[in-house]
Design a binder for these strands. Structure first.
Lengths: 238, 238
DNA sequence: CGTGATATTGAATTGCATCAAGCTAAGTGG
DNA sequence: CCACTTAGCTTGATGCAATTCAATATCACG
């Protein structure tokens, strides 16, 4: 265990896990849960703490129980691109190679389950219902990455930021629903920029310009409220 | 069958398929091949022909036997982003939703195997060795998409184009090896641009500038030769 | 209340896009 | 076999969105 991470007692059983419904392990039937509880370690990380490091030997993968994790890749000159944010129920550091391809860092305080890397394959082998669910998950994941390719390759700064706000702030597709609700964005402006292929200055500028046009309000920097969701959706295009 | 596509007789058995070694079906053991042969249709497409259309009901998925397919998404105003090129052994149009999320179009004359969409899940269920291979494939695929995110989000036009040339023209990682070899690029400049998040003009300009610096030669527009692979690798960074 | 980190705002710069010609190569039909 | 057409490619001139550099402003936390 590297300095700073915290392993809590594993007394908590998987059966009672609040994240289980959204997690890959949700597909594991009850009879498998006890074994699962034994093969995982519950590990916590503080904000800014690195969980796994790009290029390091891939020994474990993780499931997010609570909090937000960012996955990113860095170029040698410091440019970084965030690949995605992981929320409760997402798993990460599932590499097919023997090295981690991305760095994972806690954006907030994070609780994770850690498993040996080989375990996923074994579990899938053991439980066919998990295997199906993993396949669905991977197709869904690929679709999200494809969305992001379009965003990075072809969208303007404004479109990118509006999409980001809608993605993380609006109920999926059902117009209206989410207008006026507060969105808490625990990541920094630089994080958002590194996710959207922009600079933090541009993120700032676009947010204030959206606020000037009464499409959103930014109370404190980590809290945004969507005002005109309809118009925002139109801006984010498709 | 839509107008223009060509279904050849299915007499050719999967057992003798030249693309099988690199394909998902390569993981299916001999005993399953006869059934596989029966469940697929061999379908050919001519250059520029649309294979499946973004938004259309997802009924089939395809495996490339020969030729190159491009997958792309279009925005309503015509901006398009190519998600990737599929080569022999790649499969595409595997959607988790009931609509295709990308359009697939033949870049060259293409031979494909078409399967009913539900078949993949059934096959995976039937053959555990396929299931493992699919999982590996999906992780590898995700890693490629992540690479492309970094490229689109953080790289300059020159870096993008050099990476593209190295990716499709150089043997994997083994420096030297591939210097001087001809690379045939059947896609248009616009295709390359749509893949790299650029315009065709920029692709042209960068290629001629690389040629002026004696890093590559461009004989006819679809044929490029890498001269200084070492330096190209340095430009493409990491 | 002070200090360092984060965010905003402004001004200047630039890399790539856009617009606009020409150029080239591959058909096509007389 | 050669003008004519057309699609794709190259090259140049100009514009602009986003970056870069720089100067505050604001926030979070001891």
């Amino acid at each position: 265990m590297t300095a700073g991470e915290r392993s809590t007692d594993n007394g908590i059983e998987c059966a009672g896990c609040p994240a289980r419904a959204q997690s890959f392990c949700g597909a594991i039937p009850g009879r498998g849960l006890e074994a699962l509880s034994r093969s995982r370690q519950l590990i916590q990380f503080y904000r800014r703490q690195t969980i796994v490091c790009q290029g390091a030997p891939a020994v474990s993968f993780f499931n997010v129980v609570s909090g937000i994790v960012k996955l990113y890749r860095s170029l040698s000159d410091g440019r970084t691109q965030i690949i995605g944010f992981c929320f409760p129920g997402d798993f990460f550091a599932t590499s097919e190679t023997d090295k981690y391809s991305t760095t994972a860092e806690a954006v907030t305080f994070v609780e994770t389950c850690r498993f040996p890397r080989s375990r996923l394959k074994r579990l899938a082998h053991q439980f066919p219902e998990l295997q199906t669910s993993l396949m669905e998950r991977s197709f869904r994941h690929a679709a999200i990455l494809e969305d992001q390719l379009v965003l990075l390759g072809r969208m303007t700064a404004r479109e990118r930021i509006v999409r980001f706000l809608l993605r993380y702030g609006a109920g999926p597709e059902d117009t209206k629903a989410s207008a006026g609700r507060h969105i808490h964005l625990p990541m920094t402006r630089t994080d958002i920029a590194d996710f959207l292929g922009l600079t933090s200055e541009t993120v700032s500028r676009v947010l204030t310009s959206l606020a000037r046009e009464n499409l959103i309000t930014v109370s404190v920097s980590h809290s945004v409220r969507l005002i005109n969701v309809e118009l925002l959706r139109r801006i984010s295009c498709k």
